[in-house]
């Protein structure tokens, strides 16, 4: 049984009088621990697919089985619980809460999950260490560089030790060098067992993934796999084992 199974997924939006088919008849299976890059032209449905995988959106038709459970029929609160414990998100624009410090931003998922403060502090301290953010723990997002912000966001996304990490253009707002660092960080987390699904416009980054999905007009144009490559050797970045 694959970790993720999509069958006959449709998702369309009504814009004015016309309907836009963001995803149509999409079927897909992803195993636990895979490293998948989703690529394709703008408007091809990449973000829509990622939002569906992250239970932020519901399909109009079709089924989504996550770890053997049909999650399309879950209530909103049940879906929130799945997001809380099984899924981590990394966004292009970081999405840090501006009034909270780096440490408090990282602690947010633990707070939402109702984990007791002492345990929370212990885990946040470890994450700060793992992601090289100890010096920045008390800084607010506007006092951090782009790379540091994305590291805080990744620390936050992984603090609950999710089985699935979803990243929508995680390096889109970063310069080349910082983007490379962040990519290595994500790959290290994947190497430690987390399923990693990255939406990217960058062909170089896409090539590093072991599996590439090419989207076009809401459909899967190609699904290619690559055997061991250079990405598998770049486990030098710091990261915590889930």
């Amino acid at each position: 049984m694959a970790q993720i199974e999509l069958a006959g997924i449709d998702r369309s939006f009504t814009v004015g009088d016309s309907r836009v088919h963001a995803l149509s008849a999409l079927s897909l299976a992803i195993e636990a621990g895979e490293y998948v890059a989703i690529m394709g032209p703008s408007g091809s449905g990449k973000s829509t697919l990622l939002n569906l995988l992250g239970l932020l959106d519901r399909p109009d038709a079709g089924h989504y089985r996550l770890e053997g459970r049909d999650v399309t029929t879950l209530s909103a609160d049940e879906q929130a619980a799945v997001r809380r414990s099984r899924i981590g998100f990394v966004f292009q624009s970081f999405h840090l809460v501006p009034r909270l410090s780096a440490a408090e931003n990282i602690a947010l998922p633990l707070t939402l999950a109702g984990i007791a403060p002492p345990e929370r502090e212990r885990r946040v301290a470890r994450a700060l260490r793992d992601f090289g953010l100890e010096e920045r723990a008390r800084h607010r997002p506007d006092e951090l560089s782009g790379g540091q912000r994305q590291r805080v966001a990744i620390a936050r996304a992984t603090i609950m030790q999710p089985a699935l990490l979803l990243a929508d253009e995680p390096t889109g707002n970063l310069d080349r060098h910082t983007g490379e660092e962040v990519t290595q960080l994500l790959e290290a987390l994947n190497a430690a067992g987390t399923t990693l699904i990255v939406v990217t416009h960058d062909p170089a980054m896409g090539r590093r993934a072991r599996r590439q999905l090419m989207m076009e007009d809401g459909r899967l144009k190609s699904d290619s796999r690559r055997q061991a490559g250079p990405a598998d050797e770049s486990h030098t970045a710091p990261g915590s084992a889930p």
Binding site: A76, A80, A81, V82, R83, F89, H95, L108, P109
Partner: peptide, 16 residues
């Protein structure tokens, strides 16, 4: 609004 979206992505329920 962005923050609310984020909290939901992190698993906050409507009640939270």
């Amino acid at each position: 609004t962005g923050e609310i979206g984020l909290l939901k992505a992190l698993g906050a329920t409507g009640g939270d």
